[in-house]
Amino acid sequence: MRDNKLKYILVLPAIIVVFATAVWPLIESLRLSFTVGRLTKPNFPQGYLGWENYTWAFMEEPAFWNSVEVTVLYTLITVILTTLIALGLAMLLAPGGRLRGGVQTLLILPFAMSPALIGVSFRFMFNPEFGLFDAFFGVVIPPLAEISWLSDPTLAFVVCVMADVWGWIPFLTLVLIGGLASIPQDTIEAAQVDGASSWRVFKDITLPQLVPVLAVVLILKAIFSLKTFDQIYMLTNGGPGTATQTLSHYIYFSGMKYGQIGYSASVAWVMVIPMILLTFLYARYVFQKR
């Protein structure tokens, strides 16, 4: 067979799978978002509604805005915290050696852990009676000793952030260690010989060269933070009340628990738009490398 035919035959199955499992459901969700789409009623998806699901979400649903607020806040805090801590840890671990190399290996573990299980383990750690972290914070910050973390709206959110940061630091650290390793050592050594302080070396040499990797890390983390579902579901299930209800969780609830597929599809599409923007930003970095 000639190459110019073969090359398209080879990609065809993959393209079909991607279309069937990602492109079609996206378009179908968009179509459903303009319908009544009640699961529990006959003749699904009932009739065409126009933009009503969207206007309903924006105008009439405080719960929607609450989940937007939670998601934005959650994304901002987790992205900044995870990146900063991971950068620090990467600087500490980058030199290598036995101890540092060993810790680098350990960093794989939280990452291979199911996010649902991370949620469970943090619920365990913050149990008011026998949670280890709960006991620890009770000793370190006495006013928190008597408080049940997961029943308090603010603290429950803090626990969700901690679980997320805990789960993502290892991966981001490993990426940043890779980034640090690709910075040529001779400029750094030359600056050190000239007597530049460690801080100056970091600020003027390391950091600027790390920008592309940092950008990848920030975008990737932002995408995964925006999508967060598993951990929240197992940790607080959006509660107490709706204090930790992210957009994904809100979509899940209105679609699956209340059977409002049309409405939840419209909210889902509100979420898809920032994702598309972030993806294109990310793709730019991926293709720069080629």
Binding site: E28, S248, I261, M271, V272, M275
Partner: peptide
């Protein structure tokens, strides 16, 4: 990068 929750609605139906 598409949120899983978006993909799953049509598949569920």
């Amino acid at each position: 990068f598409v949120p899983a929750v978006v993909i799953i609605l049509p598949f569920f139906v």
